[in-house]
Design a protein around this nucleic acid. Sequence first.
RNA 1: GCUCGUGUGGUGUAGUUCGGUCCAUCAUGCCGCCCUUUCGAGGCGGCGACCCGGGUUCAAAUCCCGGCACGAGCACCA
Length: 482
Amino acid sequence: MTREKHQKSENLRDLPGDTSEVIVRFAPNPNGPLSIGHSRGVVINSSYAEIYSGKVVLRFDDTDTKVKAPLRNAYDWIREDFEWLAGRPADVEVIASERMPVYLNYAEKMISDGFGYVCRCSAEDFRASRESKSECSCRDRKVDENLEDWEKMNSGIFLEGEAVVRVKTDMTLPNPALRDWPALRIQHSEHPIVADKYKVWPLLDFQSAIEDHEQGVTHIIRGKDLMDSTRKQTLLYNHFGWQYPETLYWGRVKVHEFGGFSTSSMQESINKLDYEGWDDPRLPTIKALRRRGFDSQSIKNMWSEIGLTQKDISISMKTLESLNSALIDSKCERRSFVAKPVSLEIKTDLKNPQILLPRHPENKILGSREWKFESSILVQSSDLVDGKVRLKDFADIYISDFEAKIESLNRSDNRPIIQWLTKGVAQEATLSIPNEEGVEIIRGVVEGFEIRLGEVYQLERIGFARVEDIVEGVVRMLWLHN
RNA sequence: GCUCGUGUGGUGUAGUUCGGUCCAUCAUGCCGCCCUUUCGAGGCGGCGACCCGGGUUCAAAUCCCGGCACGAGCACCA
């Protein structure tokens, strides 16, 4: 525990500003479960909260009911993913849609105080104003008129697209993104939590700005695609007379193996039944990584090692797999899996030779697996070639014509070593390996020695795999990595 | 187009604040060898980088100027 903390502080640079009471936040849109990209936000933010004995807020940014509508189940999925990654639940949880009165109240104050206004221009017309740096006619209207229109927005008289509330900045600002940016818009579609209670919903820049202030967030750590968001929000904070939090950014992340993906594109593929669900092992979701048997610490280690750089990076699953192997290798017992098994008869004069295999080759896990000898054994069809071979942890043999002769119990030369099973210990099994085309299911037999559901084993000469299910004696395993 | 950000080996990262200790760190990857009752783990060796061009300086990955490349924002998405 202390070592873990020490490691993190070595990798993550110090936060700027006052760090006496750090409050950070992670704010996903609950339109699906967390992906590997999101995990950076969870890990970085929760780690900083831990390092500074501060707090991390988990905030569900669910104020868009239309374009990326929230998914009812996603709230729980995200809570679960967050806890798995951070090792504990968030200190504070906020659901934006439940905080609507607060946002609408601030919006009204903004209009009353004259630094916000209702704009009835069409999106296209305003785009033209923004480009020409000219103020639109809505901008100079009286506060009373604005409040009247605000009322019409909220009561549903104004329809979607007929009005937005803008923050007054300066139309001549060099950065076009900041010119009188939109803060709230009308959406009449149903929300999974509050249904049709509200007609006007805040946009991210407004909702997030208000909520960060309400929660007393001291440090915002997020992707650098939100840099202009910081600039917009700083202008709003100036209007309210608030101090903007310290802000840090990370760059864009791509994962080699997965290419471009987004929560909505994954949702689409799942709907089309291209995948079995959010935890399909081919998907870059946290659910999938957990299912496959990754140790959450490997994900934490990866993000800590990468740190907080603004560089756009492209990471490889190989890196994560390597970090994961380092963590789980010493904890995983060995088992033998024989794919596409074929029988082999062993000829020997030995009386009940002993077969003792270690649970772990370096005795990181003490004890052994013991099999009862039988003359009839199973080996992988691909391993069945005439010649010298060693049956792992047992004996050097000579194969010829589906028969094997024991040459020596000790290793006598460096002939290849193969894994094998006696018929008695062999238990029917499948190993699912995801690949480009789909999920390949390899049939075979696994060593039926203390197979525990959910456990990750290292299948000798194959790699790590997790036991997903045991149905009617058939052990179903899912491939993890080498 | 405007605005912002980033550029160190295949990948990720250290070093850039206050120029020399950097013919550049560590990890991963790949290659070879060793060890081993696994194609795991371990050991040893190797490969491989400061975006480009100027400038300042005795000295530049580090400072200055100019390019270039990549990414992002300019959504009534987050």
